[in-house]
Nucleic acid binder design. Structure first.
Lengths: 331, 331
DNA sequence: CGTATCTGTGTAAACGTTTACAACGTTTTT
DNA sequence: AAAAACGTTGTAAACGTTTACACAGATACG
């Protein structure tokens, strides 16, 4: 609550001098510095981040935004941890918001970020043509995309090689002898969905297997849609013998559907999921998944953002991390 | 980027008038109002939250803080969702931080909240005697505690009846015939731990069962400690036939330990956990747990905070929600 | 018709910083 | 010894708002 004014009064100097002491300016003689520092201590002075942010040019607020589509999804929670740790290490505060996979909420929070004059933001855009993010980009505030990319805007980006992950998952299933493989993908205009589907299709083609359109279903990344779509696939006249499920929550949903039908995994139906699950080992059965290095995605995104804040002119870079197939007992 | 100045210039009025239009003051004649509104639109004006916060008395920043011990713990993620939804509904922005169960990180983020002049904060204190929170309380910024309570400070509080939950869990185990029941609790000076232990002890006493000190172990709420402590208990000369594990992550750890030893649950050892798990049904076996209404805890905490912000004088209230025993197949 | 009241708008101060610039005393240079 | 340079500190403006107060014009009232 103590302001520069009060400190200055107590130390019998001007507010400018106090400010100089605070900002480590060398232009202050040891005596006065000592006096000021004592006053600082006595009043337990803490600078107002708000006043500082108002005064300073952008890029020095030490505040960045993170918008997450679903904080209850362990994949995003892990990204958030990566971002947060890197931010904390650099003494940046983090404005973390949850858009609930809703473009309106995303727009609302982007507005907040803008109006709070954050130094930059990290987010997985709603989809490839996200207009809200495009609009935000006009402000010139740095953006780093994670997980999902944008079709139009050129921003820094940290993503995972989704195509490769999908190919590996499919190669694994095909090697196990599966020929009828169902695909449960996410919202189709999200870049990750597109890449994973491409991996699915290319893998089939690469092994001379036919594509059956009815084996491909698009959900919304939520558990319930995994359950529903798995059921749809299993109700087919010629049901798949294996499922490739394109995110963690839908994988759990699909597993639940299989349990409910008393199908044995992997004997009756094999399952490979995308994204690791935190308690994979305790699941029944522990699922084979394509693990994404979510923590690193977050950490590197934040580091990229910090670099861009200090050096706004640098060309946008894309960091592509490698996923890893973790074979457990669902295949 | 457009400021009041620019809008005023374009509408050929003073900045005061623009401000009045924005704040719905009735003291402005329709004509000028229209002119101002047009300028507002043309420039796509958005007020700076920073400048506004600097100018206004506290309590009107429309910004609140939430400090969570572990955002990757589904229990806290659910609380966060509750807080966030209530905040969003009231058009409050949320500064969400993750303290990682570390008192230093908590102190850092409390500092940020203070320096950002938030209108109030929600958090589960590190422990009952949390000095960082006590210090924060001196600023007069409203605090609502969730989940855990404070011994000294009188703040609003939303908690769950932990004692009752523990009694129910224990009654259930005892009814199943268990007489040697191991306790895996969390950090001991956290209020929830104390209450759950009290429930454990009273339940034993209430059913005429002896207390065996060596059956009681304290962990740190993390999965690993659940695994380690379960192993310790099972290594006892006279091991327990049932485990009461006092949070979700430790329950998963305990389950993992049991699996590793090839013990059948519940035949060899029964398990009751505290906190529900998001994919409980997919776990092996689906665990019996004391479910806490985490979402409601968060939502009501935020609502309490909003009330306190608008009406700072009101006496602190405690909301106590009821847990629910969800019987699945681990008992 | 002069004064009081009301209505709408403008002026300026305030919030708490940072920083360009001025000011002043001291030291160096010529 | 006067001029120049330097080093330390203070003054004041600026960031973008809100709002108390002043002010001017219109309306009401005696």
């Amino acid at each position: 609550m103590a302001s520069l004014q009060e400190v200055a009064r107590r130390a019998k100097v001007s507010i400018a001098t106090v400010s100089r002491v605070l900002n480590r300016s060398d232009k202050v003689v040891p005596e006065t510095r000592a006096a000021v520092e004592q006053a600082l201590r006595e009043l337990d002075y803490r600078p107002s981040r708000v006043a500082r942010r108002l005064r300073m040019n952008s890029g020095r607020a030490h505040l960045v935004g993170l918008i997450i589509p679903d904080i209850q999804n362990p994949f995003y929670a892990e990204i958030a941890r990566g971002v947060e740790d890197a931010a904390y290490a650099a003494e940046y505060a983090l404005l973390l918001c949850n858009s609930d996979e809703s473009i309106d909420k995303e727009r609302f929070y982007l507005g907040v970020m803008r109006d709070e004059s954050v130094d930059g933001i990290v987010l997985p855009p709603f989809d490839e043509t996200d207009a809200a993010v495009a609009e935000f980009a006009k402000t010139g505030i740095p953006i780093v995309c994670v997980d999902r990319s944008l079709a139009q805007e050129k921003t820094d980006l940290v993503e995972v090689d989704n195509y490769r992950g999908a190919r590996e998952a499919m190669a694994h299933l095909i090697a196990k002898g599966h020929k009828q493989i169902g695909l449960i993908e996410g919202r189709s205009h999200v870049s990750t969905s597109r890449e994973r589907r491409r991996g699915y299709l290319d893998a089939l083609a690469g092994h001379g297997l036919p594509v059956r359109k009815e084996l491909m279903r698009a959900g919304d990344f939520k558990q319930e849609s995994g359950r529903v779509l798995a059921n749809e696939l299993l109700d087919l006249r010629k049901p798949p013998t294996a499922l490739f499920v394109c995110n963690n929550l839908m994988t759990v949903g699909a597993l639940a559907a299989l349990h409910q039908r008393d199908l044995r995994v992997p004997r009756d139906v094999a399952v490979v999921g995308f994204d690791d699950l935190p308690w994979a080992e305790a699941l029944d059965p522990p699922p084979t998944v394509v693990r994404q290095p979510a923590y690193d995605v977050g950490r590197q995104a934040m580091e990229l953002l910090l670099k861009r804040i200090t050096e706004p002119g640098r060309p946008p870079v894309t960091v592509r991390l490698l996923p890893e197939l973790v074979v457990r007992r669902s295949t």
